[in-house]
Design a protein around this nucleic acid. Sequence first.
DNA 1: AAACATATTGAAATCGATTTCACAAAATGC
DNA 2: GCATTTTGTGAAATCGATTTCAATATGTTT
Lengths: 339, 339
Amino acid sequence: MIDVAQRANVSTATVSRVLNNSSRVSAKTKQKVLQAIDELNYIPNASAKSLRSQKTRTIAVVVSDIHSSYFAEIVKGIENMANSRKYRIVICDTQNEREKEVEMMSLAMDRTVDAMVFVAPIISNDEIKAFVDRGYTVGIIGRHIEHPSIPCAYTDNVKISQEVIAHLLDKGHSRIAFLSGYADSTDSYERLEGYMKALTFAQLPYDQELVENGQFNENGGYEAFRRLWFKSLDITAIFAANDEMALGVYRACRELGITIPEQLTVIGVDNNRVAKYITPKLSTVEQPKYAMGALLVEKLIDQMNDNDFIDQRVFKVDSKLIIRESSSISIDRTGSVST
Amino acid sequence: MIDVAQRANVSTATVSRVLNNSSRVSAKTKQKVLQAIDELNYIPNASAKSLRSQKTRTIAVVVSDIHSSYFAEIVKGIENMANSRKYRIVICDTQNEREKEVEMMSLAMDRTVDAMVFVAPIISNDEIKAFVDRGYTVGIIGRHIEHPSIPCAYTDNVKISQEVIAHLLDKGHSRIAFLSGYADSTDSYERLEGYMKALTFAQLPYDQELVENGQFNENGGYEAFRRLWFKSLDITAIFAANDEMALGVYRACRELGITIPEQLTVIGVDNNRVAKYITPKLSTVEQPKYAMGALLVEKLIDQMNDNDFIDQRVFKVDSKLIIRESSSISIDRTGSVST
DNA sequence: AAACATATTGAAATCGATTTCACAAAATGC
DNA sequence: GCATTTTGTGAAATCGATTTCAATATGTTT
């Protein structure tokens, strides 16, 4: 920068002013400075910049598995919105490890980033609140946290369950199993709530045997389903907490010779890429992932740049049931089958 | 840091020495300093640190689509190795836009990162070389660049093609189409070379009509296949440049009523997640993605920390053909079919 | 006990930008 | 034409760490 200043015969202060359009600089000197910058191929040093300004214009996005289309879509929404606001994002993959999620907080603590977005985090609401109360800026996707300065974007899990179960009841099912994720995740809890509500609404009993927990991935679904199935509970339909788990159910069924949807109806959540390729095509629930990412990060950036801004903080977005082959068959009470 | 120094009754220099174990500090003062750090909950500022040290211990990983399992696995390899060397990585998704790939270079230019890893980049070798010659540190995955200071990890594309084609010839195919990616990508070029070599080896003619280019994704495969198919070339097998494209072929076939593998054999490359779920299961080629990522970044870090280090710079890793249902059928010259 | 080596520490310079403050030059008002 | 405001610019302080250099304290050798 000093070189630029010398070449343009001005002070570094002026160079800085030109770079940031901060205060008026005469057209003539501005021209000189720009030319010098160009000739020297000068690029301002990011560390120096953020050291002085105490801002990095960078947001960390913490996801548990970039591989999953759920996260990938959200990240795209975040990225595009962030870029349009001249923010950079860094994507942090925790590979489903709780410990790594905590580690990532150091990015905010050492001021590598200005803010963090946690997507469907593993850590508890209380931990996040404590973190925010220590002065860090955080946004959450996929969960709702009651806190005045934490923006959240999430889908109504209760409603998702209710719609799915209503659809299954409509198809004549009454023994509907629920493959849930980690028992203590908010998602799981809310979906279970919706599941129970829907049953109650249909005046069906809630049988705890029909609920099984597992990991939020293919193998989790596979194992949880096998535990369920070997209990011989006359299940005719499975509601899996996400499509990955539903794929695990598919695999188990293939091994066990159970045909979908004739012998078993399966529904997932996410509408991931595989869902529409696999045979039979998987019924699922679509969430506006891209929009959640974009909305949330826009809100977060607004919040960082204007502390008074106390607009809407919580985004509860709508989901949509997508009915495909895996839930295309109706059954009646006698056990006979019709398409 | 000044607070810490005051609380411990030492200078900031000493605090810094304690933090970095740089030079001898007496056990007693060290203890005092550590205690003060702990009590004040002090965390060094990353910007200041890297401004002074001219190092960020951060590596940018540029991929064209984090969603793809090809990239995701590589990134995991990179991340784990980088972390074990106390480096951070930032993942940059270019969403297949060439322009964004170029933009990402600014991360190195403004010293936000110490080095960049390009995974299967779109930009040309010459552009990358020019960048490196301007003093930036770069590693490449998925392509080979002849340059003394660019480490590369890649698979032998020629060999991949040869093995795939050999397998198909073995199954009795002689009209084998090749769905290539961008015509000017190195991958495409090398695979085409392997394709031609294999044909020559089998004393079959090379028919340019059988080669079609498309985008490296599902839709690219779909469209390229349709262009091919409507030329009515008596194709019995398709070799797609990656699994995504193969999935596009699947979709087109479903629409056109072509059965796989009875009427058409399909093989992809990548062994992505969908490949083993879809019906029929897709034959493909597995590359050691995780290992490529880890190897490359280890090399890159070594190179940054020791300029004399002129060990192996190029990693040509082995791939493996995975035969599944989509290529399970043999044909003979009379056109009859057997499993 | 003097001379010298070694261990420990602090003051101050430095990294490369931004920003405050002051001041000169130009523009405006009367 | 003089006072006043506005504009444009530079010198120097600052952000928060690291590192050099010098100074002091301690230990060792004769």
